[in-house]
Design a binder for these strands. Structure first.
Lengths: 340, 340
DNA sequence: AGACGCATCCAAAACGTTTTGGCCTTCCAG
DNA sequence: CTGGAAGGCCAAAACGTTTTGGATGCGTCT
């Protein structure tokens, strides 16, 4: 049976009011009794009941994040960095992070958001993998729930968050490949309802245009952001009679799948086919050969998103409500040493 | 202002008691009114306040996990799988996962466990990266808090959990290397207070013995489970005048650091120096060359640990309270193609 | 007719805090 | 001596549920 504020009050011959206020450091309790209270609380190992406090204060001291588990099980290592970032920043502020997983755009997802927010389980949310039309953004703004998000949906609502210049990133990537002499550059994307697809594909097209390369529709195929999806798409591209000499994955995981497909086909990444991705996950660095990619500081982004969120929750006015970052092009062996 | 049970009762001309019991499916409310209540609840978007419910029920419907952030920021990708597993399994049971991060064996860690458990923020915890003498195990059993853990500390307490035969794994790994002709096999470990160090190091020693190889103290160095630590330790080993021909990392991340050190030294992994790790993280598969490792199904382990934990919380008697798994030796290029 | 069982419903207590609106003293200025 | 301010404390309400222990009415059995 845990010790309550009432036990403490009885022990000290004080009212629970005074104990509560003493612990919260109010001015209307004398310094000497405050000391007594604090000491006793420490000795008896008193911790205020989280539930009771939340009920009164109407604050959960927690933020939420729901990670999109697309496939049956395993998810992008990208989310590992993201969750770490959320977690570390929240911990620094004595705030808890509660996470759950759910396939996006499903009934379950809606139910889960409703459950969390209608029951005031968290004070705010961080969103990720934004959709072009994102019902979550509408839902949260309509219900006046604080949130921040990575990416910008194509909606009237203006939400605080961080946006990365993915379009520009992909454009520069295509130019890099064009400079290497590639003229048939493929792109493996994802569902068009995701902003990352919108932006990165647009960047791909812009890059082609800027480099004066023709757009070849057959070289655009849609994946599912997973490694296996990338492999499948890669195989399809490699089987074409007039296939690509370079393949861009919408993310690193897809690109790694392509690498595997290339190997399966008995060819060599870098020498026979150039491959590049986006994200800058650790795996890309250790890949064989190392993967050219656009690095985006996921961990720091997550930290900043939670810092911003906590600001919003506390009613502060943020210095900047929308931050733009540039991804960094990391050229590695997978797009060099071309042998043809 | 969210809708409460009282609003619902008023609207329906019922007492809050009846509404509550109707929603919980008690037998003492007629089917017709139950329907009325359920419909109204749905229409008005009623969700019971999480805090109020938790306060009454004395149940948080949440489990906790604190991830050990050793270095300033980034952590082992291993934990990504682990958290995914916890999360998915918890979600399946409509239970939330609350996570935080904290450097192990610090004041902060103790404070954090106390804060969570004395304030009944979670119903139980999953532990990881067990210590040989693990105060958390003592703390949790003493306070009768449900928990499960991966690994077995060397303590009197008997806690439900999963244990992997790391010792046997490392022994077989050493034998594999010995069979390849290696006679000077190094081992890069970690703090001796971790059970993984205890077990894996013991396995290393057993392997040497079994293979009839001499134990050479200089070939054992202590790392910190990070890639950079592995690289440092690797460099140290490579500088030795009579250095090892094979290096074992206590985990994959360490081994990857060694790979980097080997490259830095202008030598080739596999050909000049064999390298192997433990965990079977994704990176090891994509490494250059692919890394020999002992695979352990972290994701599934995490799922089973939470399933077990939920069983304990619900007062069930577990079919088996301690599960033992065998790691799988995955031999890849990093320990083959020896050229000397 | 009385006792009893059954089906529905409910008032009030409880959970452990925080906050509101005071109540006593004491002290000082007028 | 009095009025008022200030310092230190507290009783009670409130937060939104769940649970306890009936209450009511109706039919059935003795």
């Amino acid at each position: 049976m845990p010790v309550t504020i009432r036990d403490l009050a009885k022990k000290l011959n004080l009212s629970i009011t005074t104990v509560s206020r003493a612990l919260d450091g109010y001015k209307d309790v004398s310094e000497s009794t405050r000391q007594r209270v604090v000491n006793a609380a420490y000795e008896m190992g008193y911790q205020p009941s989280y539930a009771a406090r939340q009920l009164r204060r109407k604050r959960a001291d927690a933020i939420g994040y729901i990670l999109p588990t697309s496939s049956p099980r395993f998810s992008d290592p990208l989310f590992s960095s993201f969750v770490s970032g959320l977690c570390d920043e929240a911990s620094d502020h004595q705030i808890d992070l509660v996470v759950s997983s759910c396939p996006p755009e499903t009934q379950d997802e809606q139910a889960m958001y409703h459950r969390w927010l209608d029951s005031r389980r968290v004070d705010g949310m961080v969103l990720n993998r934004t959709r072009v039309y994102d019902w979550r953004v509408e839902f949260l703004t309509r219900n006046k729930i604080p949130f921040t998000l990575l990416g910008k949906p194509d909606m009237i609502y203006d939400a605080p968050g961080i946006v990365v210049n993915e379009r520009g990133g992909f454009e520069s990537l295509v130019r890099h490949l064009a400079a290497q002499g590639h003229r048939r550059i493929a792109y493996i994307g994802a569902s068009p309802y995701l902003t990352i697809q919108l932006e990165r594909y647009a960047g791909y097209r812009q890059g082609l245009e800027a480099a004066g390369l023709p757009f070849i529709p057959e070289l655009v195929v849609v994946g599912d952001l997973t490694e296996e999806g990338g492999r499948q798409a890669g195989l399809k591209l490699l089987e074409m009679e007039n296939g690509p000499t370079a393949v861009l994955g919408i993310n690193d995981v897809t690109a790694l799948g392509v690498c595997r497909a290339v190997q399966d086909a008995g060819r060599m990444v870098g020498r026979d086919v150039a491959v590049a991705g986006y994200d800058g996950i650790k795996e890309s660095e250790f890949a064989n050969p190392p993967l050219t990619t656009l690095f985006q500081p996921t961990y720091e982004i997550a930290r900043r998103l939670t810092a911003m969120l906590l600001g919003v929750i506390n009613g502060e006015t943020l210095p900047e409500t929308r931050i733009t970052l540039q991804p960094e092009l990391m050229i590695r062996a997978s797009t060099q040493n071309r042998a043809f």
